[in-house]
């Protein structure tokens, strides 16, 4: 088992990542991955797609058939159309239900694996020192704070370690996002510039270069 220090860090990292990316995005991504796997659910979805296509084809035929001139054909198509529509609606209901179930399961698993662990570990290991501070380096009130709430004096408690991890990770992610944002903005600007360059008529450009030469 890896040390508690690492576990706490990992949990905080996951929480921060989920917060940044967004729970819904992650759910959707996992849903799409689940659908691409060879499981009954994805087969059902493929079937639904096929049925939808079939339905649309029947509907096109139905619209193309004159009910007055070819009543028998029209009525047969109509029956097929109605049957398919009913079937499709039923399937859609079932699939929506399974999607909701999937989301719910995923959400509960995520909550337990992040929030639950986040609360449970500090509670369970509150008396355990994560690591010891060098003796005599820090004044009493710092040592008291570092061991908050129940770890022995002179050590760093799990709660304080968690806070530290959260703070550092939040800072790091913010930095990364800011840097990424800068990059994106810079690239956008470049692209815009290129567009403007293209949009500038040739004569205006020539005049500009002439003025520069003078």
């Amino acid at each position: 088992m890896p040390s508690l220090l690492v576990i706490i860090f990992a949990v905080e990292l996951v929480v921060q990542l989920v917060n940044t990316i967004g729970a819904a995005t992650i759910n959707n991504l996992l849903w799409r991955i689940a659908l691409s796997l060879p499981i009954p659910l994805s087969a059902e979805f493929a079937e639904q797609r096929k049925k939808q296509k079939e339905y649309l084809a029947v509907r096109r035929d139905l619209n193309a058939t004159s009910s007055q001139d070819e009543f028998a054909k029209w009525a047969r198509l109509r029956r097929q159309h109605d049957k398919l529509l009913e079937d499709l609606e039923k399937r859609k209901k079932d699939l929506d239900g399974s999607k909701t179930k999937f989301d719910r399961t995923l959400t509960s698993v995520r909550v337990v694996a992040t929030r639950g662990v986040q609360w449970f570990l500090p509670f369970w290991y509150s008396r355990e020192p994560m690591f010891w501070l060098p003796y005599g380096w820090f004044p009493y009130y710092v040592e008291w704070f570092a061991s908050f709430p129940r770890a022995p004096l002179g050590s760093v408690s799990i709660v304080v370690w968690q806070w530290a991890c959260t703070g550092v990770l939040a800072l790091a992610i913010e930095t990364v996002m800011a840097v990424l944002g800068l990059f994106v903005a810079a690239r956008q600007k470049q692209q815009e510039k290129a567009k403007v360059k293209q949009a500038v008529p040739a004569s205006a450009k020539a005049e500009g270069s002439k003025a520069e030469a003078k």
Binding site: D69, E70, F71, A72, A75, R76
Partner: peptide
Amino acid sequence: KKYLDQIEEL
């Protein structure tokens, strides 16, 4: 006759 044929068919 047209509709009768359709009825027969359907």
